[in-house]
Design a protein around this nucleic acid. Structure first.
Lengths: 98, 98
DNA sequence: ATAAATATATTGGGCATACGATATTAAACC
DNA sequence: GGTTTAATATCGTATGCCCAATATATTTAT
């Protein structure tokens, strides 16, 4: 069950490339709480070290983008995630439709 | 993003009460990998200490069941989980239907 | 009664997630 | 040019997840 943050970051980056602060805002919007710098940057670093994201400095910002390897990994992770958690979502949708 | 295992355990126990080994088997079936003792029992202990599950000794087994407080907490957690991860599942379902 | 099997539980170590504090760099402003 | 601001990054610390190893208690088998 570990690696959910990295998984989520990878998914966000698959929609569009972003810098760290934009990523924080996206996470804040979706999760309700904004991750701090000490959460996000080590995660990005680890993703980069594993070759799943690329980074490119642009002025004072660093644009992170998903790599080919990252897309492959994301697809595998999505498949796994959905097989494990899909039922919980189905249940919840059903129960809220009554 | 932490607490996914406890969340999952709570959800499993909301379907039916189980002992630790049955829980391990359910997790193995759904996740693909069987959690070891050092994973499952500390999680159950913490859930119990927070009043989310009850435990009852039956011979050599300990039956764990969800409490009222646990059901309330699970409902909140499900709502949150689905709002955060729902889109990933929707995306995946769409992309696999083509 | 003894041995084997089942189930629970803890310990120690490693990695992931999380925060707040601090430092560094680059752009923007005056 | 010097100050402020924005963005990146690291550090220390705490907690959750994860395994392998170990220990304990209870049931089952011989």
């Amino acid at each position: 069950m570990r690696g959910m943050l990295s998984f989520y970051i990878l998914w966000l980056l698959s929609n569009r490339s972003m810098n760290g602060q934009e990523l924080c805002k996206e996470l804040a919007r979706r999760r309700g709480s904004k991750p701090s710098a000490g959460t996000i940057y080590p995660a990005l670093r680890s993703l980069r070290e594993n070759g799943l994201v690329n980074m490119e400095r642009q002025g004072r910002a660093t644009i992170y983008s998903i790599s080919e390897k990252g897309r492959d990994e994301l697809e595998r992770a999505c498949k796994y995630f959905c097989s494990v958690f899909g039922e919980i979502l189905q249940d919840h949708i059903k129960s809220t439709h009554k």
